[in-house]
């Protein structure tokens, strides 16, 4: 196939003359378009906003955004693709956590790469980390079961053993049978780079694909970046919808799993993810 043959086929798709009039009418009925902001004015406005934001927690929430970018890399001779989540977290030094947390980490004899503690409730997990760490959680309706809240810390095994981030993880099941997990990541000054999260898979996985969906403006003022990962099986497709957002410099990720027999289709899963995201304070 070449461009000429393709374009000949596409000439069959010519809009009717009436579409022009119809669209013009719709535009006219929609009213006067809003004036577009010139880049220089936008830059000045952004600069003023920056000055006004210092020390203002609400403004920090409004300003922090994540960026989702696809990538391709080669590892060990194989090609991989996926996406990275970029952002600029607020770093919290170890001393900002509770003394109990610091003592527990100091006493950890590093049998594995992760330092782990488990709690029955969100309130217990939050109290363990301390009031200096600004954390929120969801309050989703219809949750019929949650497992324990796991607090773990990732440290550099071959570095000097310092913590790079602290993670809180929990899984929940809804009354419709669907499950989702929630992760919160609190970064320390020893975390380097602006790639905070992401997923990857071999480029030649024919039955796997990912799609960056529309960003979602959450009820709490944050903006979530949403990615849908899909796997095609013989019996049908399964979908993972991952919503990532940052609040007060902490990264949150909600992973909603739509299995093959999911009661919701892709649009329904996206709506449900939005509902979960909107239940965050």
């Amino acid at each position: 196939m070449n461009e000429k043959i393709y374009r000949q086929a596409m000439e069959n798709f010519t809009p009717a003359p009436t579409l022009r009039e119809r669209t013009a009418r719709a535009v006219e009925e929609a009213g006067t378009p809003r004036p577009r902001t010139r880049p220089l004015r936008a830059a000045l406005l952004a600069a003023c906003l920056c000055l006004a934001l210092v020390g203002t927690a609400f403004a920090a929430t409004a300003v922090y955004r994540l960026a989702v970018r696809p990538y391709e890399e080669e590892h060990w001779g194989d090609a991989f693709t996926g996406y990275h989540i970029y952002g600029r977290p607020i770093a919290h030094a170890l001393e900002e956590f509770t003394q109990e947390f610091q003592d527990d980490f100091a006493a950890w004899d590093h049998p594995s790469i992760l330092f782990n503690q488990k709690f029955d409730t969100w309130e217990q997990a939050k109290a363990y980390l301390g009031d200096s760490i600004p954390l929120v959680w969801h309050s989703m309706d219809g949750v019929i079961f949650t497992n324990e809240y796991r607090v773990s810390a990732k440290y550099e095994m071959y570095g000097d053993g310092k913590i790079t981030y602290v993670n809180i993880y929990n899984a929940a099941k809804l009354s419709n049978g669907l499950t989702y997990t929630t992760d919160a990541y609190i970064y320390t000054p020893d975390y380097s780079g602006d790639i905070l999260s992401g997923r990857g898979w071999p480029l030649d996985w024919d039955n796997f694909q990912a799609e960056i969906l529309d960003s979602y403006p959450m009820a709490n003022g944050c903006v979530a970046e949403v990615v849908m990962q899909s796997v095609d099986y013989e019996e049908g497709a399964a979908h993972d919808l991952i919503g990532s957002f940052m609040k007060d410099g902490v990264l949150y990720e909600v992973d909603l799993y739509g299995h093959i027999q999911s009661p919701l289709d892709e649009a329904g899963l996206e709506t449900l993810l939005h509902q979960i995201l909107d239940s965050f304070e």
Binding site: P39, A67, R88
Partner: peptide, 22 residues
Amino acid sequence: MADTALAPPIKEGGLPMDGAPK
């Protein structure tokens, strides 16, 4: 010690958002 640097600017489809508009 907190880092209050702003998040990196979001690019529309990889295209720069600066430059004089027509």
